[in-house]
Design a protein around this nucleic acid. Structure first.
Length: 567
RNA sequence: CGGGGCGUAGCGCAGCCUGGUAGCGCACCUGCCUUGGGCGCAGGGGGUCGGGCGUUCAAAUCGCCCCGCCCCGACCA
């Protein structure tokens, strides 16, 4: 294509609203323009790149026997009410009414629609297994859209759904997806890891997320450099460190002592001269409308996800100060588990086996020493703490690291979460009605592009992997008014097209510097520059990554590009 | 939803404190010139200063309300 005819509105300066690199470059390179918060128009270059990504996704989905369909984005409320998610999704769901005041919504995901489709059509075990997928626009009314295309309110998602007769079938479908996702992200040129994940509002038993490590991400991944263990921080487990000081020995009884003005764990540690790990931290939460006292080691943090899963209420909240005063007769800085009878007590497993620790006395400005779980109070023991960097890996003992990541894919074993309540049934070989088991598998199309830019860029612009770049090569005559250069440029351009390369001829009447800057910015993997060396029949082939330059003959230029691009 | 910031030409910004009717750079248009890293010269077009109400002889500037966008937090299949 001829650059002079294209609309590629590059910007010399960074728009003020863009914070993360991928957002800045997508705007500057003329890929996208914002319409509203979290809603973007994809211009020519973005559309080309996103189509290449979608093509890779299609090929790999087709390769595992998945069938592409296209479902509605506009859904009647009834199907979401059937699964119970009409209420669960809350304000994150875009809702609207039609002219008859019927409730509708814009699809955030398509489990319900797929299940409705399946239950109307699937009758026999002989029709299973099935994998259906689509590439659809999803709508989510994010409370805070941010970071360009990384967190938006309207986006493209490849979502697929598997239907199987039994758990072994689901395992196979899940594994096929896992493998296909690896191939997709490999082909897109991404460095990524698959991590164990929390399944959240999707429900289900097992779940992996595909993550690209980047500070622009919003998820935290805990990983072990030694054995490869890797999990979303929401789900991650570890062996906690040893307490910094030994517990006092013996069958000691709780004993109050005055701690004037010491409310925080750190203040009490300083006051007593004992480390934070010798204390118990008391948190008061309200789940399902009921108070729960959560006990953690003083230096540990609560994992809200783990607590939500255990309490069965992801919408839990912290207790208000007046509630705490009512229930404990003391304020938040002096709470403890001893003598608490009016609520459930949960304790983190790091407290099991500990003796004679320090906890609040439920009397302002007093704490207790010699508090022991199982003797001085009873509690249900669970894994409640959030992993911190430096914790020991459960499988190998290595030191866990934590880094921010962008989630580009997520696969779930849904089990019967949708098929059962929504009455999806088929007859098995014995003629008995059985409920198929389902899986659900998503890929964020724009996130692949954004993550690639976050991973691969330099001060001059994007360095896109060739497989997802909008063009393979840009042909740049240095001087438009030099007819010999223009002729050679056209010849090379035609040869590239003939070789099956996506080629762009920069025929704009601009100075060379402008063309070079733009070519670098939009991230085309290869550039052929026709300049002064044309006198001796040579042109330059420049690789965007690293700016490595080689001289090639005009006649061999297209072949050289194809070879370097691996075509 | 809580905290903070911003809104003046397509983009980046100044002007606002101390009211007097809008300016700079880039981009854009015309001509000349130039051609290996956003070139030079000359001329030119483009803004109801986010919106409303108020104060004032006079509001981009002061006050109140609203809207939008960005950042932090909460939230997030």
């Amino acid at each position: 294509m001829l650059w002079s005819k294209l609309f590629i509105p590059t910007l010399r300066e960074n728009p003020a609203e863009a914070e993360v690199v991928s957002h800045q470059l997508l705007l500057r390179a003329g890929y996208i323009r914002q319409l509203s918060a979290g809603i973007y128009s994809y211009l020519f270059l973005a559309q080309r790149s996103l189509r290449k990504i979608q093509q890779i996704v299609r090929q790999e989905m087709d390769a595992i026997g998945a069938q592409e369909v296209f479902l509605p984005a506009l859904h009647p409320a009834e199907v979401w009410q059937e699964s119970g998610r009409w209420d669960i999704m809350g304000d994150n769901m875009f809702r609207l009414k039609d002219r008859f005041q019927r409730d509708l919504c814009l699809g955030m995901t398509h489990e319900e629609i797929m299940t409705v489709l399946a239950r109307g059509e699937l009758r026999s075990y002989k029709q299973l297994p099935q994998i259906w997928y689509q590439i659809q626009t999803k709508f989510r009314d994010e409370p805070r859209p941010k970071s360009g295309l990384l967190r938006v309110r309207q986006f493209l998602m490849k979502d697929s759904y598997s239907f199987d007769l039994d758990a072994a079938g689901l395992d196979a479908a899940y594994d096929k997806h896992y493998q296909a996702y690896c191939r997709i992200f490999d082909r897109c040129g991404l460095q990524y890891t698959a991590v164990e994940a929390h399944s959240g509002a999707m429900g289900g038993s097992q779940s992996h997320e595909f993550m690209v490590a980047s500070d622009a991400g919003e998820d935290f991944v805990s990983s072990c450099p030694d054995c490869g263990y890797s999990a979303n921080l929401e789900k991650a487990v570890s062996r906690h460190s040893q307490p910094l000081a030994p517990d006092p020995a013996g069958d000691l009884n709780p004993e109050p002592f005055h701690t004037p003005g010491r409310k925080t764990i750190a203040e009490v540690a300083e006051f007593t001269g004992l480390p934070e790990s010798s204390q118990m931290k008391s948190l008061v939460l309200v789940a399902d409308g009921k108070p729960v006292l959560v006990m953690l080691r003083g230096d540990h943090q609560l994992s809200e996800t783990k607590f939500g899963a255990i309490s069965g209420d992801m919408e839990f909240r912290q207790a208000h100060p007046h509630e705490i005063q009512n229930w404990f007769g003391a304020a938040a800085g002096s709470l403890g588990p001893v003598g608490v009878k009016n609520m459930q007590i949960l304790a983190d497993q790091a407290l099991a086996g500990r003796r004679n620790m320090i906890a609040g006395a439920n009397r302002d400005d007093y704490h207790l020493r010699h508090v022991t779980l199982g003797e001085d109070f009873e509690a249900e023991i669970h894994d409640l703490r959030q992993v911190t960097a430096g914790d020991c890996c459960l499988s190998c003992g290595g030191a866990l690291a934590i880094h921010k990541s962008v989630e580009i894919g997520h696969i779930f074993k849904l089990g019967y979460k949708y098929s059962d309540p929504m009455n999806l049934r088929v007859l098995n070989a014995e003629g008995k009605e059985v409920t198929p088991i389902m899986g659900s598998y998503g890929i964020g199309i724009e996130r692949i592009l954004s993550a690639a830019i976050e991973l691969y860029h330099d001060k001059d612009g994007m360095i896109l992997p060739p497989s997802i770049a909008p063009f393979d090569v840009v042909i740049t005559p240095a001087n438009n008014s030099d007819t010999a250069q223009m002729e050679a440029a056209r010849e090379i351009y035609e040869a590239c097209l003939a070789a099956g390369l996506d080629a762009l001829l920069d025929d704009r009447d601009e100075r060379p510097g402008v063309k070079f800057k733009d070519a670098d910015l939009i991230g085309i993997p290869f550039r052929v520059v026709i300049g002064k060396k044309l006198g001796s029949g040579m042109v330059e082939l420049v690789e965007r990554k690293g700016k490595k330059t080689t001289d090639v003959a005009v006649a061999g230029a297209a072949r050289a590009v194809a070879a370097q691009a691996g075509r």
